[in-house]
Design a protein around this nucleic acid. Structure first.
Lengths: 222, 222
DNA sequence: CACGATATCTACAGTTCTGTCAATAGTCCC
DNA sequence: GGGACTATTGACAGAACTGTAGATATCGTG
């Protein structure tokens, strides 16, 4: 088990005998995945244990095996869901955002917020660690890039500016998501998390947004 | 075990009976940590098993317990060593770097290279995941910040420019290390790792360096 | 209401892993 | 050479975890 991670185990003793509830497969899978994700979130990678998860949900562990075939199946499904939800969250948030020029700052805020939200960065990192070889490459960067690029092109056209290259947009997306991921992760390591740290965090994001906007204001270069 | 991670186990069967070798405690700890790190690197977080590691080193697993007290002790020591070495590597690399103005690009290269080097980012991510609560906060950012800031101040003085604020330097360090970490990690997830990807990677780093240099050329703002 | 499908349970099996203990064997020093 | 120190080991203990098998309950449907 992860050294200093939470060590809670088998929280709910499950009601005595067997008031057996029967859920739809989807509902069951959902609850199991939720519990597994919670375990992973604050217990570290080694906290994905069938019996613990089953106890959390209030079922017996063979039920998990029934729905996911094996522990591997569970972690695989979990990894898939995590990444898919990240993509959905980002796309959703970015789509809602008004396409004003100054929105770079709030876009940065959005990406960082999404990464920090309830340990998303930790989940993504776990996935990166656990599934290294299985390259089910995600269309995440492509999606965000397109979203951003279209907006920039439209903006350039409206204001009679020279349109940015697609690669430039791709790099912005890559830098933003990478920085958000890295910052959220390393936040736990080399900054001391509390007190005025939040204020500094906010200033950092604004600084980063300004940095990008400085860049956006100029022409492209090869 | 991590789903698609390498599944090699107990590679070396250890020579038959007992040509018992006796090492110094330091040497023994070193070899054990090396083996553990290798396991972690390409086996994922769940691959740190005493018996496997012992087999790799060519010793019996109680020896590991003798030197590290417990599995926890081992992972803790490993986490510590990983981060300490990262700091040392970065400081070392940055110190050697000539303090020319255009060195921003090579500094970026350095940070990215260090993070990508033999899975360092993976190791750091593992540490972030496993030790979330144990805030043995590292002086990494402070160290790098100081290194960078001193250089910038000196450069500004030589050229009669206005000196940058320390927070600006801190943010640059934070962005660079965060981006490097995030990029190295996510590199495995949402880009498809090979072919012309390397070329794009290189262009991305250069683009990022230019972005920073654009910023460096200007005055500070609050 | 009866029946088929299947989600769920209890009980168990088999494996594997960490940790303990007492014995063994290098290495250093007198 | 003899003795202390301790790194190393084999064997074992205890626990925990994943996975299996057969029984059981619940729900939809004819």
């Amino acid at each position: 088990m992860a050294p200093t991670a939470n060590k809670k185990r088998s929280t709910k003793p499950r009601s005595a005998s067997s008031p057996r509830v029967r859920r739809t497969p989807e509902e069951a899978r959902l609850r199991i995945l939720d519990a597994a994700e919670a375990r992973l979130r604050d217990g570290g990678p080694e906290a994905i244990r069938l019996q613990d998860i089953a106890a959390d949900v209030g079922i017996s562990h063979p039920t998990i095996l029934h729905h996911f075939e094996s522990r591997d199946g569970l972690t695989r499904a979990l990894g898939l869901r995590i990444t898919e939800r990240l993509v959905a969250d980002l796309v959703d948030a970015l789509s809602k955002e008004p396409a004003t020029e100054a929105s770079a700052e709030s876009m940065i805020e959005l990406v960082f917020a999404t990464m920090n939200d309830s340990g998303t960065a930790r989940l993504i990192a776990w996935r990166a660690l656990s599934f290294e070889s299985s390259r089910e490459a995600l269309p995440l960067l492509d999606t965000i890039t397109t979203l951003l690029h279209d907006r920039r092109v439209a903006h350039a056209r409206e204001n009679g500016l020279v349109a940015p290259s697609r690669e430039d947009s791709a790099f912005i997306a890559r830098l933003a998501s990478g920085a958000a991921l890295g910052d959220a992760l390393s936040g736990g390591i080399w900054t001391q998390g509390s007190k005025e740290a939040r204020a500094t965090d906010a200033r950092f994001r604004r600084w980063f947004a300004h940095l990008l906007m400085e860049h956006l204001g100029e022409g492209d270069e090869t």
